[in-house]
Design a protein around this nucleic acid. Sequence first.
DNA 1: TGACAAACGCAACTAAGTTGCATATACTGG
DNA 2: CCAGTATATGCAACTTAGTTGCGTTTGTCA
Lengths: 140, 140
Amino acid sequence: MLKTLKEKLLELGLRQTRLRALLADFLDSASEPLSVPELNRLLLKHKNQANKTSIYRELAFLIKHDLVREVEFGEGKKRYESALLPHHHHLICQKCQQVTDVTLGSGAEMIAWEKLISAKAGFKVTNHLLEFFGFCQKCR
Amino acid sequence: MLKTLKEKLLELGLRQTRLRALLADFLDSASEPLSVPELNRLLLKHKNQANKTSIYRELAFLIKHDLVREVEFGEGKKRYESALLPHHHHLICQKCQQVTDVTLGSGAEMIAWEKLISAKAGFKVTNHLLEFFGFCQKCR
DNA sequence: TGACAAACGCAACTAAGTTGCATATACTGG
DNA sequence: CCAGTATATGCAACTTAGTTGCGTTTGTCA
């Protein structure tokens, strides 16, 4: 079973704070990567507002501890999701903005590409960004 | 041989303006996608400054005419490159920021993935974002 | 050459993200 | 259980990317 951020935080013995617990909760139960404005709105909804600076700093902390990862949908802002989720990509509907996770087979093709790139350009790939845009079942 | 934006603009009979010609020139000779701040700096260097609003509007115009496309490297800002270049991806060095173009074979794998996605999730892919991060030959 | 649409500049604004500094809070050892 | 310390938080001010409204200029075509 997939571990939650909440559990992992406890396990790692990291300092327990109000904001940390709340953000872990939101990210654990989110069905898609969340932006800082969205996290802020969630905090407000839970009558537990926080300064945006603190949110950015807390996210940086979680990223440093490999608990959260940044995702980019090309919107001009970053999104964040639990790094405990297995590596996957996203399908983003251009009409209703719905986000669906997708896992691409074994990842063998990607590894093949990275090898090809290394051979061709002498470039060592450590990371990649792959997202799909289009229309979901409802909107197509 | 690859057509330049300059040639294509002439061919299409679009209105000729100073800014349009300059931006076309910059994008034609750029070795990597350029951001608006970068375009602005290039304009200044050519003693031909323009307002950023005009640059954004001009880029929107060029995109509308399928002459330019947006690219995202997850920096929180957009980059622009000639849409006359064949479809390709980028290798972005995390140390020196150098950008190298890369073309992934026939694109057959990508098409296979898009079919898989359509079958699995009922999602019609119209576009994708794929960039690679790592270390170039010099920096690895 | 004059009229009209398109292009442009300017000012003011929004939104994401950052920095410095002062204050508050969570954990530790005594 | 309390005091000290490192960490977390809040606040204000700032930076950078991008947008909007509006008035003025410029390119094109008749």
